[in-house]
Design a binder for these strands. Structure first.
Length: 277
DNA sequence: ACGAGAACCTGTTTGC
DNA sequence: TGCAAACAGGTTCTCG
């Protein structure tokens, strides 16, 4: 579910509730998500103050006042939503973690597929943490340029669509935004990654940046599971050009093609074979 | 070393 | 109508 725009939307929603607040109560309701919770998870973070909320690629990072960093990933179906303590929200069987702050707000982590994770590191060890060490820089940072991207794609024999999903190539792009960016850039998802350079790469970089920025502004895309932290849906799905639009007319100006669907690396790819080359 | 495919888990939609 | 298969926003492991 959550790609960069959805995670960023959640981060922005959680920030006012968590930053500067104490995690007064932490409830962990199962021993593991995709990976086990670390030993002593609840005790290690209870009573700590959240000093900052950051995002790296699709990871949410909570900085704590003792130097620990709480690493969260939402997987395919994870949500982080806010509710007041004592609200009448019925507990869901997939509410796996509940954080209650010193002023009585609750952040509920719900994830029915449990592909998400939570673990701990420290600010000193963060750069070397196995989950984070190989992540490519964020595509919304200034360092994401055509020269940078073509360097990461050079020599790759995998299709460009699959390469964009590789978090060592671009940090934060997932299946929806890879398809959308390639359509905007007029590049075939089947083209070998190593051949995306020069003019094509100069089109692809702004296409990735623009689609991510527009999606953040829309609160992300809600297909099934995504909710903003306040519980509202995102609405960027209404602006999809190709994703989940098989047989629709291609929206590219002057193109009379139709959207097709293929499978690459076990993931659906949507694209227009007429204007994407 | 690299790339393809399966696996992880649950829920919903689709097709026979 | 009912049941089984296919599919879903991600990541990681195994195998060739």
């Amino acid at each position: 579910m959550p790609e960069l725009p959805e995670v960023e939307t959640v981060r922005r929603g959680l920030d006012p509730v968590l930053r500067g607040h104490v995690l007064a109560l932490v409830e962990q309701r199962r021993p593991n998500l995709r990976i086990p919770f670390p030993d002593g998870f609840v005790d290690r973070i209870t009573g700590r103050t959240v000093t900052a909320l950051r995002r790296r690629a699709k990871y949410l990072l909570f900085d704590l006042d003792d130097g620990q960093v709480l690493i969260c990933h939402l997987g395919m179906s994870g949500r982080m939503t806010i509710q007041p303590r004592g609200s009448n929200q019925p507990a869901d069987r997939h509410d796996h973690v509940v954080f209650t702050t010193d002023d009585g707000m609750q952040v509920v982590y719900n994830d029915h597929r449990r592909f998400g994770l939570m673990t701990l590191t420290t600010s000193r060890q963060e750069a070397d943490h196995p989950l984070l060490a190989k992540l490519a820089p964020d595509p919304l940072e200034d360092a994401f340029t055509p020269a940078h991207l073509s360097g990461r794609l050079a020599g790759k024999a995998t299709p460009i669509k699959s390469a964009l999903l590789d978090q060592r190539v671009v940090g934060g792009v997932g299946n929806i935004y890879a398809c959308e960016a390639l359509n905007r850039a007029g590049i075939s998802p089947r083209r070998l990654a190593g051949s995306v350079a020069g003019k094509r790469c100069e089109r692809l970089v702004p296409a990735v940046i623009d689609v991510l920025r527009e999606a953040i502004a829309a609160g992300g895309s809600s297909l099934r599971d995504h909710r903003q932290a306040n519980g509202e849906l995102g609405y960027f799905q209404h602006n999809f050009r190709v994703y989940d639009r098989e047989d629709s007319p291609c929206p590219t100006r002057g193109c009379e093609g139709h959207i097709g669907r293929i499978v690459q690396a076990n993931r659906s790819t949507y694209f227009c074979s007429r204007c994407q080359r």
